[in-house]
Amino acid sequence: MPGFQPAPPVLPQVAEFPVSVQMGPAGPQEVYEGMVAQRKELRNQLDRLEDQRRDLSNNLRSDNITTADRAGLEIRLKETDARISSVEGQIAQADLAVAKAAAIPGAIVERPPLQRNGPPEEIMAIPIVFIIFVLGPLAIAYARRIWKRGATVVTPVPREVHDRLDQMAQAVESIAIETERIGEGQRFLTRVLSDQGRLGAGAAQPVPVPAAEPQRVDRA
């Protein structure tokens, strides 16, 4: 209908769960670590919500979006903003809970430093320096020498390969000669058969022979 204005969407109320320190059967250290893990998870949720809001904002800026899609994206954007605000409040409460849990004696226990059973780091640095500054240049120089030698020296061809190549050349030449002979024979047979066709076959015709004149004999 013309002039109809849709009613503004009603945003759902996001319930907030206050974070408090409860000892229970767990010790102070376990409670403190649980609070730290909870705060970390809330921050991960906040990062995901901010990524979702960024995607929605980019979709709203698109030129090919329809009016219905724009209205739906605006509703989702407002809901995402409400969730972000709620999670930020929960993170603030989690920070306060972590601070309270850290104040309990025995909550933060410093871990003993890692002890090395092997040689000290100063001794381990000596072979590393030796490999880098001594063996490294030697390896590079040897590799360059091998590369230059391979580029200049040509590996000789074995004698057996030469002999086989000669045999192959002779065999190819003999095959060429025999092929030429076969071609000559075929051309000769073709010429003979064509000549017989031109002569034809039939009865022999008499050939006229002129009569000899009588010779005169003089009598004495």
Rank of each mutant, 00 (worst) to 15 (best):
I140E: 07
S85C: 03
T152S: 01
S85H: 09
E88G: 04
P120C: 02
V161E: 10
R159H: 11
G106D: 07
Q93A: 14
P156T: 04
V129T: 15
Q90P: 00
L135Q: 10
G136E: 07
G136F: 02
E160K: 10
V157C: 10
R144M: 14
P119Y: 09
S86M: 00
A82W: 00
P112H: 04
A143L: 09
G136H: 12
I91E: 00
L165A: 10
T80M: 04
P105L: 10
E121V: 11
L135A: 12
P112K: 14
Y142H: 06
A102D: 13
R83W: 01
R144N: 13
I128N: 15
H162R: 05
K78Q: 15
K100V: 05
P158I: 05
F130T: 04
I104T: 04
I126H: 04
V109I: 13
G118H: 13
K100S: 09
E160L: 08
P158A: 13
G136Y: 13
R149T: 10
R116G: 11
W147T: 10
G118S: 11
D95Y: 04
A103T: 05
Y142G: 12
P105H: 08
V161M: 12
R111G: 05
W147A: 13
I108N: 13
A143V: 07
Y142C: 10
E79A: 03
V153M: 01
A99W: 07
D163E: 15
G106A: 08
